[in-house]
Design a protein around this nucleic acid. Structure first.
Length: 302
DNA sequence: AGCCAGGCAGAGA
DNA sequence: TCTCTGCATGGC
């Protein structure tokens, strides 16, 4: 191991790195005194945000850093993207509270496998499951001097060979059999992840939901967060509540109605709009939780 | 103690 | 096609 030997600086506008890396898209980033450390494309990286820039450090040769620019989607034109959102009150509020929030462009297998763990789990639990998977089954990656061991996300060929019981020891419960079965199918070429990106959105969805444990929501997460389909629109419990409360107040629209609405209302960057709504309503709920925690302060008894 | 979490699959109506 | 239920686990 060695100290970070490689570094570069990206000039950025409207990039809230902390919000982006904690927004429930990716699950491996950890914050260390304002820096963010993670593994992308087999490289350990440290990201240090400051006004108008993100400094990146690596310990293994990063080449031209293109892989990291792509991952962070530094070339997204946020002005044009925000301008494509519907001009309504909910989106105006979301834009107001999520300034600088970005989508990422992740590696398909890691994204797919991570979201296979996501059903009825909270984001901190997903992060924990992903971390245990990497520590137990991932290949070692060169990390910083004095840091802990660093591991890559285990590929499908690795997880396909792991027993369901061993996977369950990562506390992923019933999701273990889905992860193993999906890894087996991908590893033996039963579903070419490389080809998904060249399909149409509908074709790609239809293909992904044939994987065990992958339904419409997880498929759209992968299509949005890894394959860069701008109209993919994952509807989870948060987004469903947001759509109901903000666009159908006092009514009880079916999920199918909400999905149809989402396909037409949010425009060519609907996926981005979805992430803004998701983050917006989670931040509002977080403030409510914080108030409750204050009320439960030990000083006030219970 | 019970409810909920970036859901999905299978069964029955 | 819609609705209901079981599924692991952990936090509050």
């Amino acid at each position: 191991m060695s100290a970070p030997r490689y570094q570069t600086v990206f000039q950025v506008e409207d990039y809230d790195l902390a919000a982006t890396l904690e927004s429930g898209q990716a699950f491996r980033w950890t914050e260390q005194g304002g820096d963010w450390e993670g593994v992308v494309g087999g490289h350990w990286v440290r990201l240090r945000p400051s006004v108008g820039r993100i400094e990146a450090q690596a310990v293994s040769d990063p080449g031209d850093w293109r892989w990291l620019r792509d991952y962070l989607r530094l070339d997204d034109d946020m002005g044009a993207i925000l301008d494509s959102f519907p001009k309504d009150e909910p989106m105006a509020a979301a834009i107001g509270t999520c300034r600088g929030l970005r989508l990422l462009r992740q590696e398909p297998w890691e994204c797919l496998a991570s979201f296979l763990l996501s059903s009825t789990k909270q984001i901190p639990q997903i992060r924990q499951g992903v971390r245990w998977l990497c520590e137990r089954f991932g290949n070692a990656v060169e990390g910083p001097e004095g840091g802990g061991r660093v591991y890559a996300f285990p590929g499908p060929e690795i997880l396909a060979e792991v027993s369901e019981m061993a996977l369950r020891e990562c506390r992923i419960g019933f999701r273990a059999k889905y992860l193993k079965a999906t890894a087996e199918r991908v590893a033996r070429g039963g579903l070419g992840l490389d080809a998904v990106g060249s399909l149409t959105l509908d074709e790609a969805r239809s293909l992904l939901v044939t994987l065990p444990g992958v339904g419409p929501k997880i498929a759209d997460c992968v299509l949005l967060f890894a394959y860069d389909f701008p109209r993919a629109f994952p509807v989870d419990v948060w987004v469903m509540r947001a759509l109901r409360d903000l666009y159908f107040p006092g009514r009880r629209p079916l999920l199918s109605r909400l999905k149809r609405f989402s396909e037409t209302h949010f425009g060519p960057n609907a996926g981005y709009a979805q992430q803004y709504l998701f983050h917006h309503v989670r931040m509002r709920a977080g403030r409510v939780r914080d108030r409750r925690n204050v009320e439960k302060d030990p000083l006030h008894g219970n």
